[in-house]
Write a protein that binds this DNA or RNA. Structure first.
Length: 194
DNA sequence: TACGTGATCACG
DNA sequence: GTGATCACGTAA
């Protein structure tokens, strides 16, 4: 079952980031379907300095201000595409970064996109997730209940299997860099390193 | 541990 | 216009 708009259009982004663990992301690009179970997320609230939306709307972050349930994809370090799920209501710019997946479908296609022959670590990191799934900036703003990128129920993750830690790579965010808003499925081998 | 890589943003 | 900066990955 695809997740509905109402799943995304709620207020509590850290709760949604945890609920996204175990959900399954699908993409269809170039006629090829790939899918994976989400095993690592990070929550970004417009109210804290880690968020691109902290200083208001800009050309880059404008889709974060749309109603929840669309993709926010941007280019990072000139090389990597990063994929976020926009949450909350219109003009309240919250989002969840998808940092790692466990591949479930279309592994062969993922290997080709990553130009490798081993599945190990192929989706363990946000840049790799987007590349392996064929996501790039053309997908910025696409709805997540359509047929390019969508999310479905996957496996239930109970609370005691979720670990929280500090988010990665946001030292610029001052004290907000210490918020424990990175969530992982405890012990899952597809989680990214640190 | 170093650095590639290019869009973006806050300045003039 | 311009320059510092960046929600990463890889090689070393």
């Amino acid at each position: 079952m695809k997740l509905e708009e109402s799943f995304y259009q709620r207020d509590n982004v850290t709760k949604i980031a945890q609920e996204l663990l175990g959900k399954c992301i699908f993409t269809r690009t170039g006629g090829k379907v790939t899918a994976g179970i989400i095993v690592e997320t990070e929550a970004y609230s417009h109210r804290e300095q880690g968020s691109h939306a902290y200083r208001g709307k800009t050309k880059r972050n404008q889709v974060m201000f749309e109603a929840g349930g669309v993709a926010y994809v941007y280019l990072c370090y000139g090389i990597h595409h990063l994929f976020n799920v926009v949450t909350n209501s219109k003009d309240v710019a919250d989002a969840v970064l998808i940092r790692a997946l466990e591949p479930k479908l279309g592994e062969k296609q993922m290997l080709r996109r990553m130009n490798t022959s081993s599945l190990q670590g192929i989706t363990s990191g946000p840049g790799k997730v987007a590349k392996a799934m064929g996501i790039d900036r053309r997908h910025n703003g696409v709805p997540l209940w359509d047929n390019e990128i969508w999310l479905e129920d996957g496996i239930p993750i109970i609370r005691s299997k979720i670990s929280a830690s500090e988010r990665i790579g946001i030292a610029y965010a001052g004290k907000d860099a210490f918020l424990p808003w990175r969530f992982t499925i405890t012990g899952n081998s597809w989680v990214s390193k640190p």
